[in-house]
């Protein structure tokens, strides 16, 4: 074991891991985060806490993680390179670890253009791959990015993101390889709708043996309505929603579309379970956290292993 992470334990044991996420509030009320956390207790192995997701200001991921940790949940600290330079990031990692946060996800972050602070400076001192390397070096070498030694280095279980659907498709496997070589332990993928394409990517991953180095958690997002399906298809960058899925959602009456979305998510998990290299699932039910237990249950992923 490289770390004390529960998630790491489950993954290295070869069991399918389940993670979900919880967006911190746009305010300072800790109750919001506690409520969301409560919904996921016993249902998932770790809870991602997003970092100014979609470039909107929210409670800091670090603070929210601490709240979850205090509730006895396993938090997963998301960190984007957009908002802090390497000094601030390392400081936050030290802080997080000091509070018992042992998982983190290294991301570049959505562009500020889409958020509520489009005028903000785009820091990008380092990119996500370099962040992975930095966290790995902190853990393995016990050094800061500047080369100085760390007293009591933080031991983070390091995650990254992978989008098998963005262009250019052909370098997507290589992109994962880069993250792997930078030291990533696991990746959570972009939500999957186009299963054949995902499988194609996964095959590439396996062909290069990357699945041996990196645990791949397949991203699942249930769709609430045909409107959402269309929106994801047309508006969200890097999302690949096949037409027949939109058709299927549109084929049922409005009231039952949410249920249909859940059905689809469950079916997908069932199918993906069988795919070589899939080490677990990351269920992103954006502002729909209450449906996560149902999905996890119906997908036959309960109970979660006790650690």
């Amino acid at each position: 074991m490289k770390t004390d992470s529960v998630l790491e334990k489950i993954l290295t044991s070869g069991q399918l891991a389940v993670t979900s996420e919880c967006g911190p509030p746009r305010g300072s009320d800790p109750e919001v985060i506690r409520k969301k956390g409560e919904l996921l207790r016993g249902v998932v192995d770790a809870v991602n806490v997003t970092d100014n997701q979609t470039a909107m200001v929210r409670m800091s991921s670090l603070a929210a993680c601490i709240h979850l940790r205090q509730m006895g949940l396993e938090p997963l600290l998301q960190m984007v390179t957009r908002d802090r330079n390497r000094l601030a990031m390392q400081a936050d990692i030290l802080g997080a670890y000091s509070h018992g946060v042992t998982n983190m996800l290294c991301l570049s972050g959505d562009h500020p253009k889409f958020g509520d602070h489009p005028m903000a400076a785009n820091v990008h001192d380092i990119d996500s791959v370099q962040l992975i390397k930095m966290v790995r070096d902190m853990r393995e070498e016990g050094t800061f990015a500047g080369g100085e030694e760390i007293k009591e280095p933080p031991k983070m279980f390091i995650g990254g993101a992978a989008n098998p659907f963005a262009d250019p498709f052909e370098l997507r496997v290589a992109r994962l390889a880069k993250k792997a070589s930078a030291g990533v332990d696991f990746v959570q993928t972009q939500c999957i709708y186009n299963i054949p394409k995902f499988k194609k990517w996964m095959k590439g991953v396996c062909d290069r043996g990357l699945h041996e180095q990196v645990h791949v958690l397949a991203g699942i997002t249930p769709m609430k309505s045909v409107g959402m399906a269309r929106y994801m298809k047309n508006k969200v960058p890097g999302m690949d929603v096949p037409d027949d899925l939109v058709k299927r959602m549109g084929g049922v009456e409005k009231k039952k579309q949410a249920a249909e979305g859940i059905d689809i998510a469950v079916e997908m998990i069932q199918e993906l379970k069988e795919v070589e290299g899939v080490a677990g699932f990351h269920i992103m039910a954006i502002e729909w956290e209450r449906k996560v237990p149902e999905i996890v249950e119906r997908a036959g992923l309960l109970p979660r292993p006790s650690t």
Binding site: H111, P237, G238
Partner: peptide
Amino acid sequence: SKRLMNGPCGGSGNG
């Protein structure tokens, strides 16, 4: 746009 040094982010589509 994100000054990425190691490859495209997940938002790249149709070039």
